[in-house]
């Protein structure tokens, strides 16, 4: 074993140790980075629809007799301003699932597919539907109309 070789092998060994240490450091930093990414709060903060509310509009934006169709939890919903107050109804017809229209003149919701008719409480007036439209909770919070799940 010459002096030179020992020197060389020693150098190689320190180099390899350093490489190993470096690689492990990189790995640990990578894992830490992934954990930081995981812990960073995601955009959609509230995930449970049963705990959700949605602002529809300012109260003065919808005059009496008018309605506004919005999406709540992926489903279309009619928010109606009536003389007696506000009503939120699922816009999905209980017959075959078409989206019902709000008829301002006749104060009814009608389904364009099979002519189902619903009154403003969601009850069936005529046509093939058998169950009333699902009602949602609606309330006026200060000057804003807010809807949420649950019986209205």
């Amino acid at each position: 074993m010459s002096e030179n070789e020992t020197e060389g092998s020693y150098e190689r060994r320190t180099f390899l140790s350093k490489l190993l240490g470096g690689a492990l450091t990189v790995g640990i930093v990578g894992v830490m980075g992934a954990i930081m990414a995981y812990l960073f709060p995601p955009e959609r903060r509230v995930f449970n629809p049963t705990r959700r509310r949605m602002r529809v509009a300012r109260a003065d934006e919808i005059p009496i007799g008018k309605g506004k169709q919005v999406l709540f939890d992926g489903e279309p919903v009619w928010v109606l301003h009536l003389k007696g107050g506000w009503i939120a109804l699922s816009a999905i017809c209980t017959h075959q699932g078409c989206i019902v229209h709000w008829d301002e003149k006749r104060l009814m919701l009608n389904c364009p597919c099979h002519a189902g008719l619903f009154d403003v409480n969601g009850n069936v007036l005529a046509g093939p539907p058998r169950r009333p439209l699902k009602r949602l909770r609606v309330s006026v919070v200060r000057d804003e109309i807010v809807i949420g799940p649950g019986e209205g």
């Binding site: 999406l71 939890d73 992926g74 489903e75 279309p76 999905i92 075959q96 699932g97 078409c98 989206i99 364009p112 597919c113 099979h114």
Partner: peptide
């Protein structure tokens, strides 16, 4: 897929019409 569900409801509505 919640974003696509509402769109599919819409499409179905047009088809049924």
């Amino acid at each position: 897929v919640s974003a696509y569900r509402s769109r599919l409801i819409e499409a179905r509505s047009y088809f049924l019409q």
